[in-house]
Design a protein around this nucleic acid. Structure first.
Length: 283
DNA sequence: CACTTGACCTGTCCGC
DNA sequence: TGCGGACAGGTCAAGT
């Protein structure tokens, strides 16, 4: 479910809640979703939160706690003190009140509230790493972050060029190209650059590649400014939805009129993933 | 080696 | 209303 903007939004939200706070207890209801010795979390204090690709990285006093939300994972933090939300009131109180529920698989108690890990499909996981260097194999295959200085047109072009016979859609989903691009943002970036997702990488012209290189960060930033895309399951750390679905041009808009030309958006499968595009705008 | 498919799970939606 | 099938944002392993 969550791609880069969603995980980044959760990270930013949790930073405000968790940094400096200490874990008092942990309950793992579905053992296979927590890798490592969960009890070691007790007594640990959150030093910082970070993100790499779609991984959420929580630096603790002595360990790292890594989370991948995969398709339907959620991390919801409920503060002990309700006044916490007094400013404006909590926008989705009913959602919070339901926790924990049948899809809550891990519960972590902090001195200031409770963190719930929910996952309908149980694809997501949490992992306790004993030392910082254990993170390396987990992130070794990821490409650069779009915010890094290493994200250059040369890098992007060179990496794409290694896979000339793949469709551009498939290439974008490869985490070793640009970390954090998933189905939504691949489709939206391709619409923004008028490139049809079925095109072979080798047939995409340098100018189009350059446009794509700029479009990916732009789409990420736009989604971030609306707290991500809540197509179905995604929630922010406080239970609110993201609002980017209101702004998508093609994703999940099959049959709806293109916002640019009015043609019905089409959908087809590319490498097993549904892909949405405008048949008129995208060549 | 590169690419495709199936598996991991559970729920929703759509057609008959 | 019930039932079967397709589909869902991610990533691996196994197969071609």
């Amino acid at each position: 479910m969550p791609e880069l903007p969603e995980v980044e939004t959760i990270k930013r939200g949790l930073q405000n809640e968790l940094v400096g706070h200490t874990i008092s207890a942990i309950e793992v209801r579905v053992p296979k979703l927590f890798i490592g010795e969960a009890n070691k979390l007790v007594g640990q204090t959150v030093v910082s939160l970070d993100r790499r690709a779609k991984l959420l990285i929580c630096q603790l006093t002595n360990y790292l706690l890594i989370t991948h939300l995969k398709m339907t994972g959620q991390i919801i933090f409920v503060p002990k003190k309700d006044e916490h939300w007094v400013v404006g009131g909590h926008p989705d109180k009913a959602y919070i009140a339901d926790l924990p529920h049948k899809h809550t698989h891990i519960i972590i108690e902090f001195d200031n509230g409770t963190l719930y890990f929910n996952d309908l499909r149980k694809f997501g996981w949490m992992k306790l790493l004993e030392k910082t260097s254990d993170l390396e194999p987990l992130v070794a295959e990821y490409g650069v972050e779009y915010t890094w200085p290493e994200y250059t047109l040369d890098y992007f072009t060179e990496r794409l060029g290694r896979r000339p016979n793949t469709t551009i859609k498939q290439a974008l989903l490869d985490q070793s190209l640009v970390a954090g691009v998933g189905n939504i943002y691949a489709d939206e970036s391709l619409f923004a650059t008028k490139i049809r997702p079925t095109r072979k990488v080798a047939d995409v012209k340098p100018k189009e590649i350059e446009a794509l290189y700029h479009a990916i960060p732009a789409v990420f930033e736009l989604s971030l400014s609306h707290d991500g895309t809540s197509s179905q399951h995604y929630r922010q750390h406080d239970g609110r939805k993201g609002r980017f679905m209101e702004f998508v041009n093609v994703y999940k808009r099959e049959g709806a009129p293109c916002k640019v030309c009015g043609s019905p958006i089409e959908r087809l499968k590319i490498a097993g993933r549904s892909s949405h595009y405008c048949p008129k705008c995208q060549k």
